[in-house]
């Protein structure tokens, strides 16, 4: 791909999206930033950049989408529903992707960088402390996982199916936990009790962190490099801190410091197991329990595993721009960020 191209970026006003747009502009690309019709853009810094074209469209509606993205060389598909009920997420993530792919067909765009997620992997069958990589099996027990996992798996299947059928150049990226300003807490650590108390599940398990600017850099690299075509990349930074280590770093930077209640992973697994058995005995396995009491979800959040970015480093020569400490400083100090 030539140094400066026309990129269509969906989900452009989202947490990751606005950094991806900023990174694309920094690299000299022209950007068609797809944002929802009612999305506020006061929080983005690139609004006045002449290389940005704002496309007001909701991917759940196919009308006019093809015309809006026509002329782009590649699509970076970040848009997805991150919350809401199952059908809200199906519409936002799966139907939205279906409409986007149809628009790409109509507009003759043949390059797609699809942003998936670590949530598509199966966790309960993995050995503790084993390494999660791009070749790890994807989740098959979708009924036991949350709606986000289900819809991201369906989304990834869909982009692979259509790209394969149409002979498009596809790259799938699966970021770990993306963190940055205003997004420092992750459910992988445990649970939040109000604003001042954190329940930390496990101590030594690693958190698969990727700082949002590092992640945006990796995604742009995938869009720019021919070697990325046909590949799937996990995106995590070099240093994945432990639950205890990350919370310690966070507490140093947050005021007032939240109170931490530690719960051991072994105890949590036992509680989960008891809840699962009770569910089978009393509700035929159909009972609705909080995520922390559903084994498949609990393992996906807190299981002690190792993570690697070896493939991304080896294939594209990527290395994270900011270290963990630098990234936390950028996230918590009063400094202007590109997005």
């Amino acid at each position: 791909m030539s140094p400066a191209v026309r990129l269509c970026i969906t989900g452009a006003s989202g947490f990751l999206g606005r950094h991806v747009v900023a990174e694309a502009l920094k690299r000299g690309h022209e950007v068609w930033a797809v944002v929802r019709p009612a999305a506020g853009l006061s929080h983005v810094n690139w609004l006045e950049d002449p290389a940005v074209h704002i496309v007001r469209a909701d991917l759940r509606r196919p009308e006019g989408l093809a015309e809006a993205i026509s002329g782009c060389d590649a699509v970076l598909h970040l848009a997805a529903a991150v919350g809401g009920e199952l059908y809200t997420q199906l519409a936002g993530t799966v139907v939205g992707t279906e409409n986007l792919l149809k628009a790409m067909q109509s507009a003759g765009i043949r390059r797609l960088i699809a942003v998936s997620s670590f949530s598509v992997y199966g966790y309960i069958g993995k050995w503790s402390h084993s390494t999660l990589s791009e070749t790890s099996p994807l989740e098959t027990r979708l009924d036991e996982r949350d709606d986000y996992c289900l819809t991201k798996v369906l989304q990834e299947r869909l982009v692979r199916e259509v790209s394969g059928r149409e002979g498009w150049a596809l790259t799938v990226v699966r970021p770990g936990v993306i963190y940055g300003r205003d997004h420092l807490w992750t459910a992988c650590l445990g649970a939040e009790l109000g604003e001042r108390t954190w329940i930390r599940i496990g101590a030594w398990a690693k958190v698969p962190l990727t700082y949002v600017e590092n992640c945006a850099d990796a995604i742009l690299l995938c869009a720019e490099r021919e070697e990325a075509i046909g590949e799937t990349f996990n995106i995590v930074d070099d240093r994945c801190p432990s639950h205890r280590g990350y919370i310690r770093l966070l507490r140093r930077r947050i005021s007032p410091r939240p109170r931490v209640i530690p719960v051991s992973w072994t105890l949590m697994r036992l509680v989960c197991r008891c809840a699962w058995i009770s569910n089978q005995l009393f509700f035929d396995g159909e009972g609705k329990l909080p995520s922390v009491l559903v084994p498949a979800r609990m393992h996906a959040r807190c299981k002690p595993l190792r993570y690697t970015n070896k493939r991304l480093r080896k294939t594209l020569g990527w290395s994270p721009r900011y270290s963990l400490e630098e990234a936390l400083d950028r996230s918590t100090r009063d400094m202007e960020l590109p997005a």
Binding site: L90, A91, L158
Partner: peptide
């Protein structure tokens, strides 16, 4: 009208 929803 959405193939994904129908298939799901």
């Amino acid at each position: 009208i959405s193939e994904s929803l129908a298939r799901f």
